[in-house]
Design a protein around this nucleic acid. Structure first.
Length: 685
RNA sequence: GCUCCCGUAGCUUAAUUGGAUAGAGCAAUUCCCUUCUAAGGAAUAGGUUGUGAGUUCGAUUCUCACCGGGAGCGCCA
């Protein structure tokens, strides 16, 4: 039972024993390839882009063509034969192929044994120049759909069958995982600076950070969210100077009755004022520098002001955190790591990591192909870089992570390159576990944001603006909601619109932000997904009211799935893809993949909904006794309900059962998927 | 000046990590509510993927050059 390492190359490293459709298909393909005498190759199994190309497609034949020096079409045809022999529903050797699967996938005892239930194929096509197009059997669609329905709707966390974090992360970061335990990940994000505004750039950071965290949790990581805030430094000095200069407002700040938001705004103005004077007046500049020194040495004459201002910011930030639903387990502050950071730098001058230059202490990044940065200023302050050096061991001391992620704007990428190079010389182990993940900036269509000039949009402002727009839509809505319901819908839809707008594009790309066009409530948007969910739930509620007959959707009724129409099949196939998308999205730190998927699922469902009646024509008139599909969607109800009714009742009813199952599954997947994005659902809207 | 990132439809963007005829959503033009929620659905139009070469069965993706935009580059964070 010793520790085993993941092979860095070969099928072992690219197979993911998660039991998703793609995982299993890869295993099946590689089992067939092995039979042909092929070596392991890296190949892709992807969801087909169009119906003619089957449900899934693979390029394995083309990948093998190189090593085997054979025509890819020939290889594909051979694979086609073996696949159909071993994995079609007529295949007599089901047990044997199961054995093959387990051998190729799980030879390592330490791998969790997931249910790598065979994917039964209906048809395999070969298309030039060597694509293999796979059509799933109704049997597999049926069992897989049931597997989804068997889950409890709720949060995306408890998805045990994709608990494959160790291997996924190893692949993702191209490191060799030494053990297969649950991976512990510390993720630092948000990082607003006290004394400054919490602007929409921070909002994107926190929204992405939360989505990353939930994605990692979904694939089985233990995630700890932390926040690192710059409560010392020139920006603080500028703010404090500004406050001293703004007598009236400073007095107002002391008034306990004032809204925290107003207080925070005054602080922001103070910063802006300090910045402007810092540049325009030499006197002010020197005063600010003096303040900075006092803050750094925790001078009693400034301590109260500093504490007071800092607390205003922190209280205000808390408001934002709860509004967007992120809970941090630890707040780190620059003030707490600055002294240690300085010490670390001083301790590593003799061994040559750092050197003195022009009064300051620097790290020559050129030795690592980077650039030089100052770690301790000539005034003897720890700079940002020195503080980060101390932060790493502090974090590790409190939580022995396998991976430490730091999320910041991409403008800081060069900085982290140098900081991590220095850390590598001091503590190679910690440096190896640390990853900087940059995300794109939020640019205003009216120009770059700058808290220096006060040209910024705050997170709160944006959320409120979205909420106003929602309220206009709600007031036109004919449905009657209670006041508290209206409030809940407006708030959740507003947050969802903003979050989705920030998640639907790649995390690394900059966003061109324009309030009028960026936040939308229809089409590819958060509220559209919420609406679709609410629509599903509405249908399921109707079932409860009028009791409808359905039946067992398990194996014996997979015949239902043989006659799926285009719209039904589209929804079913989408649902089978969910687990693969969750894993992809998490491992690649790409919530936008999940966004796209959920949108497509919702689209498929809405098309089905518009074109076909889910409950059937005669709903209400049917008096057949049955169980009731409970509104919380639990499988007992759905399948139990589905089980009772006699199949002989007619096509309409059978189809209702099928469509209800699809509706149920859609709701479930939407709820879980939105949860992973950090978006809440509403039952009605 | 040096380094890095970006350039896809009028706008915002995607493309399963080199795959098949480059997908969507807004905006535009038409249709569809006496039927389960119209924040919905159906349809039309919109592209030489900045330009030019190269690598190969195959390029939006990799290489090089150029054009255009952004960021970073010693005492901010």
């Amino acid at each position: 039972m010793g520790m085993k390492t993941v092979e860095p190359s070969g099928v072992q490293s690219i197979l993911r024993p998660g039991g998703t459709v793609v995982d299993v298909l890869k295993m099946q393909l590689s089992a067939c390839a092995k039979e042909m005498g092929a070596e392991d190759v890296e190949c892709a199994v992807t969801v087909s882009d169009k119906p003619e190309h089957g449900d899934y497609a693979s390029n394995i034949a083309m990948a093998l063509a190189r090593t085997m020096k054979k025509n890819p079409m020939e290889i594909a045809r051979e694979l086609q034969t073996i696949l159909m022999r071993d994995f079609s529903s007529q295949s007599p050797q089901v047990d044997q192929t199961h054995a093959v699967l387990h051998r190729s996938a799980g030879k390592d005892d330490e791998l969790p044994t997931q249910s790598s239930e065979m994917v039964v194929l209906d048809k395999v096509d070969v298309a030039p120049p060597g694509f293999i197009n796979i059509h799933l059997s109704s049997e597999t669609i049926s069992t897989r759909l049931n597997r989804v329905l068997n889950r409890k709707e709720g949060d995306g966390k408890r998805r045990g069958d994709t608990a494959i974090s160790y291997q996924l992360l190893a692949i993702s970061f191209k490191t060799q995982t030494k053990n297969f335990k649950k991976q512990r990940v510390m993720i630092e994000f948000a990082d607003p600076n006290p004394f400054k505004e919490f602007h929409i750039g921070h909002l994107r950071n926190i929204v992405l950070g939360e989505a990353f965290s939930r994605g990692l949790e979904a694939i089985g990581c233990d995630v700890r969210r932390v926040n690192y805030q710059g409560d010392v430094g020139m920006h603080v000095a500028k703010s404090l100077w500004g406050l001293r200069d703004m007598k009236e407002e400073s007095v107002r700040l002391r008034d306990t009755g004032i809204d925290p938001r107003v207080k925070a705004a005054i602080l922001g103005q103070a910063y802006s004022r300090g910045s402007i004077h810092y540049e325009s007046s030499d006197i002010a500049k020197h005063e600010i520098i003096d303040i900075n020194k006092m803050v750094y040495r925790d001078d009693p004459s400034i301590r109260e002001e500093w504490n007071f201002g800092r607390q205003i910011s922190l209280d205000y930030f808390d408001l934002v955190y709860t509004r967007v639903g992120t809970v941090f387990t630890r707040f780190y502050f620059e003030s707490e790591v600055a002294p240690k950071g300085m010490q670390i730098v001083l301790d590593h001058i003799e061994d040559g990591v750092f050197e003195k230059s022009d009064g300051a202490i620097i790290y020559k990044g050129e030795k690592a192909g980077l650039h030089t940065r100052v770690f301790v200023s000539k005034e003897l302050y720890a700079t940002y870089e020195a503080k980060d050096l101390a932060l790493a061991p502090l974090k590790y001391g409190e939580y022995q992570y396998d991976l430490s992620i730091i999320m910041t704007g991409n403008e800081q990428s060069p900085y982290f390159g140098v900081m991590l190079a220095a850390l590598k010389e001091i503590d190679p182990v910690l440096a190896g576990k640390t990853r900087h993940i940059p995300f794109g900036m939020v640019n205003l269509s009216t120009g770059k944001m700058s808290s220096r000039t006060g040209h910024i949009l705050t997170a709160e402002w944006l959320l409120d603006e979205a909420k106003k727009k929602i309220n206009i839509i709600l007031s036109k809505n004919t449905s009657k909601y209670t006041e508290s319901e209206t409030e809940e819908i407006a708030e959740k839809a507003a947050v969802s619109a903003v979050k989705y707008a920030m998640l639907r594009v790649g995390a690394a790309s900059d966003i061109a932000f324009d309030i009028d066009t960026s936040i939308s409530f229809d089409g590819d948007s958060g509220p559209y997904l919420q609406y679709t969910y609410a629509r599903c739930k509405s249908v399921l509620r109707k079932v409860k009211e009028s009791s409808v007959v359905s039946r067992q959707l398990k194996a014996e009724s997979s015949e239902l799935f043989e006659t799926l129409n285009l719209e039904e099949r589209a929804v079913a196939m989408k649902i089978l893809q969910f687990d693969d998308v969750v894993a992809e999205s998490a491992v690649n730190f790409a919530p936008n993949t999940l966004c796209t998927y959920l949108f497509e699922l919702a689209q498929s469902f809405n098309t089905l909904y518009a074109k076909h009646s889910i409950l059937g024509e005669k709903i209400g008139s049917d008096k057949i006794q049955s169980d009731i599909v409970s509104s919380n969607n639990d499988i007992q109800s759905v399948t139990a309900t589905c089980q009772r009714g006699p199949l002989a009742q007619g096509v309409g009813t059978a189809q209702s059962a099928l469509r209800l199952a699809l509706t149920s599954a859609t709701a479930l997947v939407l709820k879980d998927g939105l949860y992973l994005l950090g978006i809440e659902t509403v039952e009605r809207m």
